[in-house]
Design a binder for these strands. Structure first.
Length: 709
DNA sequence: TTAGGGTTAG
């Protein structure tokens, strides 16, 4: 008898374990073929791969499963669909024997087709399937609505057997109407529903809120709580908080906050509720409360951090916002696109290019620079900080540009007076088939205004006026009045202001008055000012413009009359101020300011520049002093305008040859404009001035605005 | 043992 192998018998029949584990042989059962055990093990490996989104590994294991159950096929084909691979999903579905295909697998392949955007296949499968249930119909209806095909959804909803219509079907219709802006249809359907659950109520509350009816959303929430008999969920609370935040309804929000305690959703554990509470308090300008909620959150995710960061930004506490951004990085919370958007907005709020560049570098490191959200924010940041070149560079790198990307770069170029670039960008936008909107038109018209392109403005205004999808607003008419007025067509501008289909507001008359000041048209100016004072009796800008116009015509008695009226009405002229931000610190200057620690050096340098300016042929233009005082006095006033102090401080504090960027709250005066052109030449620097109207880039004795602003 | 419905920051 041959000797049996040593492992074959003994271990199987031994019930006690050997004492020496080194001598232990594996249980024989593990070495035998056991179809059931093997299949179970493969199934669980397959499901693990799917759970971890390892599609290829999942398929490899799936292929080893002998006669996989239809449920596994269904899971596999849905995984393909979520990976946008419809051909593989359909191929797999076709391999399932017909007699084993159940309604779930049919519904799943329909869902897969919809997920992959193939509606023709979805409808074909829907027609072919042997039996349909409520889920089959609801899946189709939901798919149509998610693509905006409301009519198709309505057709299916009508054709669906009444017995199959369950609450989910009605909910899909209500939500779909809301998502497609058909809020009245949603309300009608909601009122017709045979029964409503928590999702029905949440859908209508969220839908009303999304469609600008936040007050009504809060009324529905109140009804739900008081008389629906349906318990609210954390999602309902989140939607209610969103509505309260949008309209800053503090009382409603507080009541919802109380409910979060009652239903146990708060205690800092539900991150959706927590983030919504932070946003709500921030919207009500209660940042202390927002911060208190934030501190109570047990596990803070990136959304919660971003809600706080955005809240500080909304409340113009930009330093705090950027501190939050830094903190979240220190706590190893990885910022996402929204975090970057808010942080960059705060850099714009602080006009702090240096911090913006640091955040840009972090975005590049994380590979987010070319994403549409971060890219758009970077375009705005660079444009508003005066760096159009960088803005264009970022814009070109954005992978999938949307209308906001185009608007950002168009408005940015317009602010810098780059009229031709703006029009070229618009042409490119049209060629790429991107639908322009109200903001595009405002950007284009302001570009034409700043570049004196009247004919282009007329064409653009006409083109947008003919667009069915867009309604011209009072802002657009204000822009057109501005272009006409600045280009010297003051009477036509007045005629447009009087005949426009929407009632002209004070802004329209103010831009007309500004044009009158520019072109010394006293008759139109007095009529425009009369309109403004009827609407806004204390409009300081109108008083100043009218007073300056009288002064430029040397009608000093009228100037005195305006000043008396201003004094009588308690109207205070906004003082001109300029500032420069260096190493994160903002330095402010007023006219003839002597409060800065470096005052002595600033005035010394200003005197030196004054001599150099005269050598270059500079003669102060006294019409910009606009006061009936002696010539020496006016010269002195002009020399110490705030922008000159800020520029000189910049020259003293930065490396030779580097660009200086300063900001001014009012428009730069004509005399300073002349002086700064020469200053840039004398010191051989580029000087960028952002005034209340636009950006001016001064270099080699000329300005980018071509003396037209 | 697989399929459908509502939510947060920008």
């Amino acid at each position: 008898m041959p000797k049996k192998p040593h492992f074959s018998i003994q271990p199987i029949f031994t019930t006690t374990q050997p004492t020496n584990s080194k001598c232990r042989t594996p249980p024989f059962t593990t070495l035998l073929q056991n179809p059931k055990a093997s299949s179970t093990s493969l199934n669980s490996t397959f499901l693990n791969h799917l759970k971890n989104q390892r599609l290829d590994s999942a398929r490899a294991v799936f292929n080893k499963i002998p006669s996989p159950h239809v449920s596994l096929c269904t899971r596999m084909l849905l995984a393909y669909a979520h990976n946008h691979n419809l051909p593989q999903a359909i191929n797999l579905f076709n391999q399932i024997p017909s007699n084993t295909k159940d309604i779930i697998s049919w519904n799943s392949i329909i869902r897969a087709s919809i997920l992959c955007g193939d509606f023709i296949t979805a409808v074909k499968l829907f027609d072919e399937m042997p039996h349909r249930n409520s889920i089959s119909w609801t899946t189709m209806i939901h798919g149509f609505l998610s693509l905006g095909r409301v009519v198709d959804a309505e057709t299916f909803f009508r054709a669906m057997p009444s017995a199959d219509k369950d609450v989910a079907t009605w909910n899909v219709m209500v939500n779909g109407y809301c998502n497609n802006g058909r809020v009245n249809d949603a309300l009608r359907l909601f009122s017709q529903m045979p029964c409503r659950d928590v999702i029905s109520w949440t859908s209508i509350i969220a839908g009303l809120d999304r469609n600008g009816k936040s007050s009504q959303a809060l009324v529905f929430l109140k009804d739900m709580v008081s008389c629906s008999g349906v318990d609210i969920s954390s999602t309902t609370l989140v939607c209610g908080l969103s509505a309260a935040a949008k309209i800053s309804d503090f009382n409603a929000g507080i009541q919802i906050h109380c409910r979060t305690f009652k239903f146990g959703y708060c205690c800092g554990f539900d991150q959706f509720v927590s983030a919504s509470l932070v946003t709500f308090y921030a919207s009500c300008k209660r940042m202390d409360d927002a911060f208190k909620v934030f501190c109570e959150i047990v596990c803070k995710n990136v959304v919660v951090w971003t809600a706080l960061l955005t809240g500080y930004g909304l409340n113009e506490k930009h330093d705090d916002a950027l501190e939050v951004f830094g903190d979240m990085m220190r706590f190893c919370v990885v910022p996402n696109e929204s975090s970057f958007t808010s942080a960059l907005n705060s850099c714009v709020g602080l006009e702090d290019l240096e911090k913006g560049r640091v955040i840009h570098a972090v975005a590049v490191k994380m590979g987010l620079e070319n994403g549409v959200y971060v890219g758009n924010s970077l375009v705005v940041m660079y444009s508003k900080c005066g760096y159009t070149g960088d803005a264009l560079c970022v814009f070109n790198g954005i992978g999938e540009k949307n209308v906001v990307s185009w608007n950002s770069v168009i408005v940015g170029c317009a602010q810098h007076g780059c009229g031709l670039w703006t029009l070229a960008l618009f042409k490119q936008m049209l060629m790429e088939g991107v639908e322009s909107d109200e903001i595009t038109l405002t950007g284009l018209l302001s570009a034409c205004s700043r570049s004196g392109m009247l004919q282009k403005a007329r064409c653009i205004f006409g083109y947008f006026g003919r667009k069915r999808s867009m309604k011209l607003t009072v802002e657009h008419y204000a822009c057109m009045v501005d272009v006409l007025g600045r280009c010297g067509e003051v009477e036509e501008a007045e005629a447009l202001a009087m005949s426009m289909p929407v009632e002209a507001n004070s802004m329209v008359w103010l831009v007309l008055l500004s044009a009158c000041r520019m072109h010394s048209n006293l008759g139109v100016a007095e009529r425009a000012a009369k309109r403004i004072f009827e609407m806004e009796p204390n409009c300081s800008a109108a008083y100043v413009l009218l007073s300056n116009l009288y002064a430029s015509l040397r009608r000093w008695s009228e100037v005195a009359r305006i000043r008396r009226k201003m004094k009588h009405n308690g109207v205070v002229k906004q003082p001109g101020s300029s500032w420069i931000t260096l190493k994160g610190l903002r330095h402010d200057f007023l006219c003839a300011d002597r409060s800065h620690p470096l005052t002595e050096k600033i005035y010394e340098k200003l005197e030196w520049l004054g001599v150099k300016l005269k050598e270059q042929g500079y003669v102060p233009d006294q019409q910009f002093a606009l006061h009936d005082v002696e010539i020496e006095q006016t010269e002195e006033m002009l020399s110490y305008h705030s922008e000159r102090l800020a520029i000189v401080f910049g020259l003293l504090s930065t490396v030779e040859g580097s660009t200086i960027t300063i900001m001014k709250n009012l428009r730069v005066c004509g005399d300073c404009h002349n002086a700064i052109k020469l200053m840039a030449k004398i010191v051989d620097r580029e000087i960028v001035v952002r005034d209340s109207s636009r950006f001016h880039h001064f270099k080699n004795g000329i300005c980018s605005c071509g003396d037209y602003w």
